[in-house]
């Protein structure tokens, strides 16, 4: 089975907002190896089934909603925004997020610059803030082209960046993890922090889309 046929289209949530449990099974060779390795590690007391279970639950609880809250806070609180941009690690501690051993680098979209993030060498991603990266982020197509033809990639996401704006690509290749701080859309002056957070999409924090006004 190759990378191009592996992904499936699924809705991410049911109508009542609960994540869908995806029980698709991998090829038998892969399932065999995973089960064998896991059982050996458990037999030898390296990890326990309970620990795996807890880890999965913890990861299920981490998603772009957390990033959205951080962005909304930065939109309403100048002091927090300054801290987020200059010392991201300390700012996100307010949300109980520990970035170690990596460091958080928040890049701000402005009228002059649009930022987008890729990891050409693997799939580095601010998992502590955005959860597990989307499948397209890990695929060859995005990793190969985002650094060379970012404006084409953006258009594939339906995002058109005006000619006068600089597109700045961040290749997340080492010890920093990048979060894009999108621009607050016009006409949202009357919204509170919580309402603002609902506007913030995962893709806007990777920098492949804007938040519509």
């Amino acid at each position: 089975m190759n990378e191009n046929t592996h992904d499936h289209t699924h809705a991410t949530h049911t109508h009542d907002g609960k994540p869908i449990q995806n029980d698709d099974r991998p090829p038998i060779e892969a399932e065999t190896l995973e089960t064998a390795v896991r059982e050996l590690l458990i037999d030898k007391g390296v990890i326990s089934a309970e620990e795996i279970h807890r880890e999965i639950e913890m990861k299920d609880g981490k998603g772009p909603e957390l990033g959205a809250k951080i962005v909304a806070r930065a939109w309403v609180d100048e002091e927090f925004k300054t801290r987020l941009l200059t010392d991201g690690d300390s700012a996100v501690l307010d949300f109980g997020i520990d970035m170690r051993p990596t460091e958080l680098c928040v890049v701000e979209n402005t009228d002059e610059v649009h930022n987008m993030v890729v990891c050409t060498l693997c799939s580095c991603y601010p998992r502590a803030i955005l959860g597990i990266p989307p499948a397209w982020y890990k695929r060859r197509d995005y990793r190969a082209r985002a650094v060379r033809e970012p404006r084409s990639i953006l258009s594939e996401f339906g995002t058109v960046i005006p000619e006068h704006k600089q597109v700045r690509v961040h290749d997340s290749n080492a010890d920093l993890r990048y979060l894009v701080l999108p621009q607050r859309p016009a006409g949202t002056e009357n919204l509170n922090e919580e309402e603002l957070a609902e506007l913030v999409s995962r893709d806007s924090m990777i920098g492949v889309s804007d938040i519509p006004s």
């Binding site: 992904d7 099974r25 695929r139 990793r143 650094v147 594939e156």
Partner: peptide, 19 residues
């Protein structure tokens, strides 16, 4: 992979809930 030829990104099709 940076800069190598590759296909289009289809954000809908290439979305995938982890199994």
């Amino acid at each position: 992979l940076g800069g190598l030829p590759a296909g289009l990104v289809d954000p809908e099709l290439h979305e995938h809930i982890p199994t």
